[in-house]
Lab assay of single mutants.
Amino acid sequence: RPMNAFMVWARIHRPALAKANPAANNAEISVQLGLEWNKLSEEQKKPYYDEAQKIKE
């Protein structure tokens, strides 16, 4: 299954978030990633939607 825009973004940002929160488990990191993603504007998300579309094609 191809990655969606959030997954493209999260793949880039997960390592830094995990390093900054070494005690957090994957579920907690995923929740935090979701919160951070939701704070982004549509303009900030656009490159990730574009990349996800390329992956689908």
Rank of each mutant, 00 (worst) to 15 (best):
H13P: 00
E36N: 06
K39Y: 04
M7Y: 12
W37D: 00
Y48G: 00
D50M: 13
H13T: 09
H13C: 08
W9C: 03
P22R: 05
I12S: 06
P15I: 11
Y49M: 07
N26E: 15
F6Y: 08
L40P: 00
A5V: 02
K54L: 09
P2L: 14
R11N: 11
A16L: 15
Q53C: 09
A5N: 00
I29P: 00
H13Y: 09
A27V: 09
V8P: 00
A27R: 12
W37C: 00
D50P: 02
N26R: 12
A18W: 05
A27D: 12
N4W: 10
M3G: 05
P15H: 09
M3Q: 07
K39S: 07
A16K: 14
E28S: 06
K19I: 07
N26F: 15
L17Y: 12
A23P: 03
Q53W: 05
K56Y: 12
L17T: 02
A18K: 14
A10C: 13
S41E: 03
L33W: 01
M3I: 14
P47W: 09
L33V: 02
Q32P: 00
E51Q: 12
A24H: 05
K19T: 06
I55H: 08
A16G: 09
N4K: 05
G34I: 15
K39G: 05
A16E: 11
W9A: 01
R14K: 08
N4R: 05
N38E: 11
L40V: 02
V31K: 13
P2E: 15
I29E: 01
D50H: 09
Y48Q: 00
A20N: 08
K39P: 00
A18Y: 05
Y49C: 04
E36P: 00
L40H: 01
A16M: 13
E36V: 08
A10Q: 05
E28W: 15
P47V: 07
D50L: 13
P22A: 04
Q53E: 11
A18G: 03
A23Q: 13
Y48D: 00
E57K: 08
L17F: 14
E51K: 11
N25R: 06
L40S: 01
A23G: 13
A23W: 14
R11Q: 14
K54A: 09
E28Y: 07
Q32Y: 08
N38G: 10
Q44P: 00
N38Y: 07
Q44W: 02
S41G: 04
A10F: 06
K56G: 08
V8H: 06
E51T: 09
Q44D: 11
W9R: 01
N21Y: 13
N25K: 06
K19Q: 09
V8L: 15
S41P: 05
A20S: 08
V8W: 06
L40W: 02
W9F: 15
K19P: 01
L33A: 03
Q53F: 10
A52L: 08
A27M: 10
E43P: 06
Y49G: 02
A16P: 04
S30N: 14
P15L: 10
L35C: 05
K45W: 02
M7S: 06
A52H: 03
E43C: 07
L33K: 00
K19D: 04
E28P: 02
P2G: 12
E28Q: 10
K56F: 13
R1I: 13
K54E: 06
A23D: 14
Q53I: 09
K45M: 03
L35I: 13
R14N: 02
W9D: 01
D50T: 07
Q32R: 14
P2C: 15
R14V: 03
L35E: 06
E51C: 14
P2D: 15
P47Q: 05
Y48K: 00
A52C: 06
N4V: 09
E51M: 15
A18V: 15
S41W: 02
N4P: 03
W9Q: 01
F6M: 04
G34E: 15
N38M: 14
N25Y: 03
L17G: 01
L33P: 01
A10H: 02
R11V: 13
M3W: 11
A52N: 02
A20H: 05
M7W: 15
E57N: 11
A16F: 12
I12D: 08
R14Y: 14
N26G: 10
E51Y: 14
A52Q: 02
A20R: 09
A24F: 14
A24C: 07
A52S: 05
Y49N: 03
W9E: 02
Y48V: 00
K39N: 07
P2H: 14
L40G: 00
M3T: 10
W37H: 00
E57I: 11
D50I: 14
I12R: 07
S41L: 04
E57S: 11
A10M: 07
Q53S: 10
V8G: 02
R1A: 12
V31I: 14
S30Y: 15
L17A: 04
S41V: 02
R11D: 14
L35V: 09
P22H: 03
R14S: 05
W9Y: 15
D50W: 08
R14D: 01
W37M: 00
A5Q: 01
K45V: 03
V8E: 06
F6K: 01
N25D: 09
N25M: 04
E43T: 08
L35H: 07
L33R: 00
K56D: 08
A5I: 02
K45T: 02
K46I: 05
P22K: 04
A5W: 02
D50Y: 09
E51W: 13
E43I: 09
L33S: 00
K39Q: 07
P47H: 05
A20I: 08
Q53R: 14
D50R: 09
N25P: 06
W9S: 01
Q32T: 06
E28R: 05
S41H: 02
K39V: 05
F6R: 01
L17P: 01
E36Q: 10
N21G: 02
F6G: 00
L33F: 01
N26K: 12
P47F: 07
A27L: 11
K54Y: 06
I12Q: 09
P22V: 04
A5Y: 01
V8N: 05
E57C: 10
E36S: 05
H13N: 08
K56H: 11
Y48W: 12
E51F: 14
